[in-house]
Design a protein around this nucleic acid. Structure first.
Lengths: 124, 124, 124, 124
DNA sequence: GTGGTCTAGACCACG
DNA sequence: GTGGTCTAGACCACA
């Protein structure tokens, strides 16, 4: 239920954030829900507690989580909104990426095919 | 003619490779052509010779360049093919990335818009 | 346990690779095993960390090692297979070498004698 | 008739020597024969004259050639003998090489097969 | 001049 | 602590 790949270029803490955000988007975690404690999530995911801590801290900074000292961490009301709007901002990143492919001689059609594959294919 | 950004997340040696491969793809460097010497490219680009060396070595391992010790480095016959096929493989990465946007609630239309922006926009 | 000859025609980084691959082949390092850190191996072998780094990077590109940033480097599942198949490819080089001896007037028997000497002699 | 590969790990000057020695062994060049001038061989082989010069100097040092200033270079009486005996000494190198293959997990049979291939195959 | 190798020392992101 | 990257400066073999 919690997939982390310790190898590969994506930092583990970023993967943790990504997974948690995904859970918020699909409604596994709803506003006011309590998220697992650092320790609990660490053992469940096999990730170093320091790394979980780092992920939680950043999500707090982003306004997705809020911590109630001594009681735990909770999903904010605006979590879903924040995540979606931020992802929209990431389109800039995508644009840059696409530009790279364009420069690399990949045709618009090849990418379109790719796109359809994703949006008509299976949901996962 | 040779743009490197020493600050920013992309390693300099990767940028060097990217630029050189771009030159091969657009025909600035053709098979059997000699590429600039390590030292020459270092001064031209303002990058440390060691970093150029690292880039060249990797391109050699990739079969894009071949070296004739004492004479210089040359573009292989298969260079263009290798680069293109490799980039095609990178489409898998793009596919995964697009899938992430889909999950994040970005519509197919938003990405399409992005795509057109890139392919109809300026060449740079 | 780790023999490096810093003088002599074989590059140090190549010797490091050779030693590590040997350890994989004889089972000292098994799949999923962690290999020594760059710094640790540097002090143990008396080689500059950069040189170790270079060796490790190449083995990674070869698919023999994989790195988990911040945690260390590990032997891949396919390591042994890759090494063996690559060495098998080197038989082409041997064939060429033998051909040279044949042309040089060395008889098949002389080489056979050589061969037996090696394979019946001591393991080292 | 004169094959040089400017790429690859074998130095060009060594290849030149190897080719010339081959010609002596197969009788193309006999004792007292004059070998091509540095310049002539350079244009014929497409190799830098400096490199030819280096090869000739070493062959002189080895007693295979002797120079008559102003008249040219000639094959010595002992050339063939010297080359053959030297090659015999190279068996030590072969032995070391075979040992490496043995350590690399290549079986004696695989090398034997290789050997037969060479000695029963075509002469070239 | 070319490429190939190595050292020393530094900085950063990550866990 | 780990790996990843970069710089500066040096030496060698080769053409």
């Amino acid at each position: 239920m919690f997939q982390i790949d310790p190898f590969g270029r994506i930092p583990v803490y970023a993967q943790v954030i990504s997974e948690l955000e995904r859970f918020v988007l699909i409604g596994v975690y709803k506003p006011q829900d309590q998220v697992p404690s650092v320790r609990a999530l660490a053992v469940e995911s096999g990730v170093n507690p320091n790394t979980i801590q780092k992920a939680y801290m950043q999500m707090e900074r982003d306004g997705i989580l809020k911590s109630a000292p001594g009681r735990g961490r909770f999903v904010t009301e605006e979590a879903k909104t924040i995540i979606q709007s931020r992802r929209r901002g990431q389109l800039d990143g995508l644009r840059e990426s696409l530009r790279a492919f364009a420069q690399a001689g990949i045709s618009r059609e090849e990418i379109l095919e790719c796109l359809d594959e994703v949006y008509t294919g299976e949901g996962k």
